[in-house]
Design a protein around this nucleic acid. Sequence first.
DNA 1: TTGAAAGCGTTACCAT
DNA 2: ATGGTAACGCTTTCAA
Lengths: 340, 340
Amino acid sequence: MMAKKRVSIKDIAKKLGISITTVSFIINGKAREQRISEELIKKVQDYIDEIGYKPNHVAQSLRLGKSKVIVFMAEDISNQFFASIARLIEEKAYQNGYKIIYCSTDNDHEKAKELISTFKMRNVDGFIITPTPNLEKDIKNLLDEGFPVVLFDRWIPDVSCSHVIVQNEESAYQGTMHLIEKGCRNLCFVSVMSTQSQMIDRARGFRKAAQDSNVDYQECLLKFHNLAEIEPYEKLLEFFEQRPGIDGVFFATNYLAFEGLQAMGVLQRQVPEKLKVVSFDDHYFFNLYKPKITAIEQPLEMIAEKLMETMLEHLGELDKVYKPVKVVLANRLNERESTL
Amino acid sequence: MMAKKRVSIKDIAKKLGISITTVSFIINGKAREQRISEELIKKVQDYIDEIGYKPNHVAQSLRLGKSKVIVFMAEDISNQFFASIARLIEEKAYQNGYKIIYCSTDNDHEKAKELISTFKMRNVDGFIITPTPNLEKDIKNLLDEGFPVVLFDRWIPDVSCSHVIVQNEESAYQGTMHLIEKGCRNLCFVSVMSTQSQMIDRARGFRKAAQDSNVDYQECLLKFHNLAEIEPYEKLLEFFEQRPGIDGVFFATNYLAFEGLQAMGVLQRQVPEKLKVVSFDDHYFFNLYKPKITAIEQPLEMIAEKLMETMLEHLGELDKVYKPVKVVLANRLNERESTL
DNA sequence: TTGAAAGCGTTACCAT
DNA sequence: ATGGTAACGCTTTCAA
């Protein structure tokens, strides 16, 4: 009924009448190296299989100072983008013997700071982080202490840290150009007020395209989403109601697009006839929506792959000072009905 | 530059010229109990604050046999439902000093089995699991070994294990009745082939409602979603094309509804005029879709709350044999345009 | 009121 | 070829 005490390496040694050391060597594949006799190896291995012995990772972690755990600090793990990345990362982590602990920062510096300090005392081996504002110093500290850190989604200009991001400016430029090519002459960029690098880059790409093409444009910046806040939907409704001339909208993120599209519906602004739409961050539902929404798709699998590849590389170079790896991936513009 | 060695309790003791024990007592709030002098307490605490000492959780875990880690085994962490639960659980776990490791089983028994065994050797304190088929024995083992286990989304009839689920049968019954009340006389239930309790219960509720009302019905069961598989969309297209008489569809899950709705669009079956639709598992996009889709909403916050409440309760009773807690929560039918 | 020391399960150095 | 043992950082019993 009650937990049968787990067998330890000591029990095995006692049972087989040999020393702990020998068992340890055999378990860790150092038997040959130590010239332990084949028959003893076999005997120990058979016994281990028989009783189903599994080494205690906590003890290993204490001894080795490594835990085989990576922490994944997303802005919000329930967000589809982060959840998808989490899933893909999980796969690769497990394949390499690593587990993943997750947490959500809510883009809150204090919370992120606290989480980092919590995980340090758990001997986590590495950090994958979507940095919040003002996290520069904490990231720098982690790096100085020798922790592998890989940032993603956004990065921090002032700190030389590995990161995996996408071509935000380039793709925003391309998406905006697409609107212009389709005939839009009065553009609007909808985004959140934010100092996050990816948002700034997207805005820059938009502006550049509009300016390069000599097209009128304006920007609608919403407060960062916060449950206490008024719905973006309300704001967008008001904004567009007062600006009937707008004929092309670039949404900086899919969440805003969904809210905005609802507003367009209510305002009877037919898409794409009266107003064309492009959104950053493609989504399953952009394909279902009527009309289907043109969107910029981030290469999720590639992001996850590069994240883990970089992390594993750094993990392999523990105690050495590793060179930061900076990956910038291309996106894809999926043209659909909203820009016909 | 390189990792300044982390201070341990030993360093503190040495620095202050007292024993490790004393420091430990003070850190763990047992100073009063041990009648340690106020001034010494203050001295130690001040020093700890000054150097920012944080105890090593791995060492604590090894010593105490508890890790303050809960593992969250979902079917697929990138699925919106599981991701949302993950987020809510995270919140409560962290509030109580627990961290969460996640993993996805893909509903694969072998994978789940392996994951369980992996986590046992990490001293995880508890398991929150969406059980895969054939996992009865493994759950039972966990229970026998004294691990707190809470199942959710579905449960296992043969094992007396705590679980948090929703009223699947009742809500499916209610949703089906809703279709019938709105005039449907030729119903169809779309689901996946599955032995999962929640799917079976939903089917049962559907059937019962149809039979109680003496209404024709049929069922369309798709192979369990698998990337190698043909798209549910194709199957549904074919299925409904051959059955023009169907005037009411109950989708067992939102994923199927989205695929089915696309098929309806192509087949020109106007919703709700020609065919009414209800889906299990409400979704943000059911509100955005045109027409808005009537759906049964699971109480996510409540599920998460009950999950953690139950888990924490069990964690408090470690080493005692705890009574399984069985929670069944009510859902809400959100009536929308698809059943007008 | 404080300290010494055992012990949690491992690994790895040093003997033999 | 194999074994003894210190060490990882902490908690807690027992002794002083």
